[in-house]
Design a protein around this nucleic acid. Structure first.
Lengths: 242, 242
DNA sequence: TCCTATTATATTGGATCCAATAAGAACAAA
DNA sequence: TTTGTTCTTATTGGATCCAATATAATAGGA
C-alpha cells in the first residue's frame, strides 16, 4: 500500500482512471484515508491536486465527486490536441530538423514499419510496441517545437480517455480492422515526417491536426454501448492500454 | 489579512503576480505562514496549487521558488493562445450565431467603436473600457465555441504576462501610438465578427490566430529595458492592467 | 588557510486534534 | 401524511506536534 504523498496521489489517480472509483462517485477525506491506511493530510493534498487536474469536482461540505466525461468533451479535447500538436508540427517544420532528430524520427518510423511487415493482424504485443513508438513520435515533435506552453496545454488532456497519446484504445475482438486503422495512422506518421523534413509547415500542421482524430472511432462505439451519454472513464472492453 | 484557504491562495498568487515576490525568490512554508499570520497548513495547500498553476517551482528540501518567465516563453504562450482562440473562432463560425449572440457581439463592437470617435488619443479610462470590452469579446467567442478543453487549455496562460486577455499592457508615455494599435486590434474584432456571422470558418480562425499577436510589441520593449532575458512578472512601466 | 567532520538549524511530510459547518436522521406538531 | 424543528453525525479547514531529511554553520585537523 502506498505510503508517501506522491504515491498517494498516483494511487488515487489510478483508481479514478481505472474505474475503481466510478463516475459521480463521492469521495471524502476520512473514508479514503481509512481505505488507504494513511492520515487525512496526504489525502487532502491529493484531492486538491486531482481537482486541479480535472479528475474531481469539489462538493462543498460533502467531499468530492469523480467527474464524468461526455462524448462531446472527449471530441472537444481531441480537437484541442489536434490544434496544439498541429502547432507543434508547424513550428518543428519551420525550425527544421537536426540530423540527430531526423535519425530519431527515422528509427521510430522503421520500428512502426516492422510491425506491418506480415500479412497477419497485429498481436497484442505488436499493439504495445506500436503504442510505445507512437508516444515517442508525438513527443519528439513536441520536443522539436520547443514551446513550453504547448506541453502545458496538452497536459490537461492527459486524463481524458481517447484524447491523449498516453492511452490507446483498440478492439481486441477485431484485430484485422484495427491493424488497418493503425497502418493508416502510421502512414500519416510518414507523411508528417516528410513534411517536417522538407519544411512544409502548412502541410505539417494540417496532417498533424487530422491525425489527432485517428482514435475517435472507438469513442462512438462506446457511445453505442451505453445507456446515457456520459461514460465512465476507461477500462471496459475494448481494453484501454496506458 | 487573509484568513481562509482560498483567500490565502489568492493573496499569494497576487503577491507573485504583482512582483512582491521576485522571480527566483525562495518561499518556504514556515516564514510565509509567519508572514501571513496563519498556520502552515493553508500555505502548504496554496503552494501546491501555485506549483500546479505554474507560478512556483518546487525546490526539494528548500521550499519553492518563484518561476521566472522568459520572452520566448511569453511568445510561445501567445502562439498557443492564438491557436486555441483560432480553434474557438472556427467552431463558432461552424456552429453559427444565435440572434442573441449576434446582438451581444454588436453591442461589444459598438462599445469599442465609441472609444475611437474623437481624434484625441485614448485616455486611461478609455483603455479600461477597451480592456473590459476586449475581455468580453474574447470570452463570448469561447462561450459560443462550447468546448471545455479550449477553456481549460487557455487557463494555463492566464498567469503569463502579455499572453492572456486578462491583462493588458500599454505604454502610457505614448498614447497616440497606443490608440492606433488598439484601433487596429478593434478593427480585427470587426473582421472576426463578420467572419463568424457569415460562417467563414477558415477566415475566422486565421484572423483570430493573428489577433493574438497584437500584444507582443510590448514584450520586446520590456526586453530592451532589462539586463537579462528573464523578466519579472508584471507591474513595471508600461502599466499592466489586470 | 583549506578541507572534512560534526553539530545546529531549517524545512518538509504526515499524524492528530479541535472547532466550525453542513448534511442527514429522528421526532413532534399540524 | 407532510412539514418544520432539533439533534446527531459527517466532513472540512486550520493548528500543532513529531520525525525525517536537507542545508548551513562551526570546530578541528592537516
Amino acid at each position: 500500500m502506498a505510503n508517501s504523498g506522491p504515491q498517494i496521489l498516483t494511487t488515487l489517480r489510478q483508481m479514478i482512471l481505472s474505474g475503481e472509483f466510478k463516475a459521480n462517485e463521492r469521495l471524502a477525506e476520512i473514508p479514503t484515508a481509512d481505505r488507504l491506511g494513511v492520515s487525512r493530510t496526504p489525502i487532502r493534498l491529493a484531492f486538491r491536486a486531482l481537482e486541479q487536474e480535472g479528475l474531481l469536482n469539489k462538493l462543498p461540505g460533502r467531499g468530492y465527486e469523480v467527474r464524468s466525461v461526455s462524448i462531446a468533451e472527449i471530441e472537444g479535447a481531441v480537437e484541442v490536441r489536434g490544434a496544439l500538436e498541429g502547432l507543434a508540427a508547424r513550428r518543428a517544420a519551420e525550425k527544421g530538423l537536426t540530423d540527430e532528430q531526423k535519425r530519431r524520427f527515422e528509427e521510430l518510423l522503421q520500428q512502426g514499419d516492422e510491425l506491418f511487415q506480415s500479412n497477419e493482424p497485429l498481436s497484442e504485443k505488436d499493439i504495445e510496441l506500436y503504442h510505445t513508438m507512437n508516444k515517442a513520435f508525438h513527443q519528439l515533435i513536441i520536443d522539436v517545437a520547443d514551446n513550453r506552453a504547448i506541453s502545458i496545454a496538452l497536459s490537461r488532456d492527459e486524463h481524458i480517455p481517447f484524447a491523449s497519446v498516453n492511452a490507446l484504445a483498440y478492439d481486441k475482438t477485431n484485430m484485422r480492422e484495427e491493424t488497418k486503422r493503425f497502418l493508416f495512422a502510421h502512414t500519416q506518421h510518414h507523411h508528417i515526417y516528410m513534411t517536417l523534413a522538407s519544411r512544409q509547415s502548412a502541410r505539417a500542421e494540417m496532417i498533424m491536426r487530422e491525425h489527432a482524430h485517428a482514435t475517435l472511432g472507438h469513442v462512438h462505439k462506446y457511445h453505442g454501448a451505453n445507456e446515457n451519454e456520459d461514460i465512465q472513464l476507461i477500462s471496459k472492453d475494448p481494453i484501454l492500454k496506458q
